[in-house]
Design a protein around this nucleic acid. Structure first.
Lengths: 193, 193
DNA sequence: CTTAATTTGGAATAAACATTCCGTTATCAT
DNA sequence: ATGATAACGGAATGTTTATTCCAAATTAAG
């Protein structure tokens, strides 16, 4: 029988996610990957195929993890406004961790690759659709209970909230401070009342 | 006396702006530049220095042109709400030109480079500040004339509007349709009333 | 029309790039 | 322990990268 794998495939994939998230596809070299993943070049290619396939898998992994946890957060909610505040807090807090944030891997990849690469565009659009739909459910329920006003439709509001989050992700990349984020979030939330 | 320059430096710079805007810094090779600018490799290096210096100059040129025209638009306004609508229309129209838009060169560069490169971060932040300040003047005047409500402060509103535009620029990169943009813009504008 | 200046195309360079290959090493079942 | 199997590290590959260099072409002034 053969030697068993000494590294955990999912765990190493997690390191690839962080690296691509930080430096983008074009900004990450095969050498960078070898250095950061802590496995050999040959293991890397044997396990994940080429650089682009590893990138796609990293992006899908991110989508599952991050969009997944956001969607779960939304679906398990019973105080709709509080949950929305938490979603924004989550984004803002993450943005303020380092002076120059990594932003959102989806936003980064959309900007870098979506116009030139249909596969990436599809992943990014799928993500947008998923989150928009989750927000839609949340807003609908909030409107039914009277927590949110019906001044605007739920679908437009869901798109608006998602767009606001995308904007925050961009702003975070050039190092804005908390005051800026709070101003934006306050006004975005007021649109629901 | 010597031979005279046969190409127009500013005109060729304009081609560099379009190319970097489309493909980003890492996505654009020296060969791409030679092919698109229509001048020789030696003229390119003699005139603009190295790739990074040409990139910086392209980004500054974009800032002068595009932020400049937006700021002028804002400052020459006497119907504040109409001008704001025009600003959004300008962004949306540009986004819908091609199926996959180039987005905004500032947003693209911020996402690709700002966290790793202080010089780029400074240019992007300067741009943000300029546009935010212009929006601030517009909103203040609109609030004084009663066209906009004073429910929110002018500075927070300026930040909010700028953030909304950044979001639209991201959304456009993965090919959203007009309905999505209109939903977002409608709600953003309602925040001022 | 010659001279001086300067742009030009393209060859040359050296480093970095993604990827493949291979001999060695480690781990399992027998 | 031994043999079969597969991961491993690192050298090797061939391509692409950014940049420099140079000889030939082009132009303006004398």
């Amino acid at each position: 029988m053969a030697r068993t794998k000494v590294f955990n495939e999912e765990e190493v994939l997690g390191k690839a996610v962080k690296l691509f998230w930080e430096k983008g596809y074009n900004g990450t070299s095969a050498q960078d990957l070898v250095d950061r993943l802590g496995i050999s070049r040959s293991s890397l290619y044997d396990t994940y195929g080429d650089k682009f396939r590893l990138f796609k898998r990293s992006l899908l992994q991110y989508r599952k993890e991050f969009a997944g946890s956001m969607i779960e957060m939304i679906h398990s909610s019973d105080d709709y406004e509080k949950t929305l505040v938490e979603v924004f807090e989550y984004v803002v807090t993450e943005s303020l961790q380092e002076k120059f944030s990594k932003g959102c891997f989806m936003v980064n990849s959309s900007v870098e690759m979506a116009p030139h690469n249909p596969e990436i565009a599809e992943i990014v659009n799928g993500n947008r659709q998923d989150i928009e739909d989750a927000l839609l459910q949340l807003i609908k329920k909030g409107q039914e209970t009277g927590q949110f006003s019906k001044k605007h439709g739920a679908r437009p509001l869901a798109r608006f909230i998602f767009n606001t989050i995308s904007g925050l992700r961009v702003t975070s990349k050039s190092g804005a401070d908390k005051k800026v984020f709070d101003d934006i979030v306050t006004i975005a939330l007021a649109a629901l009342k």
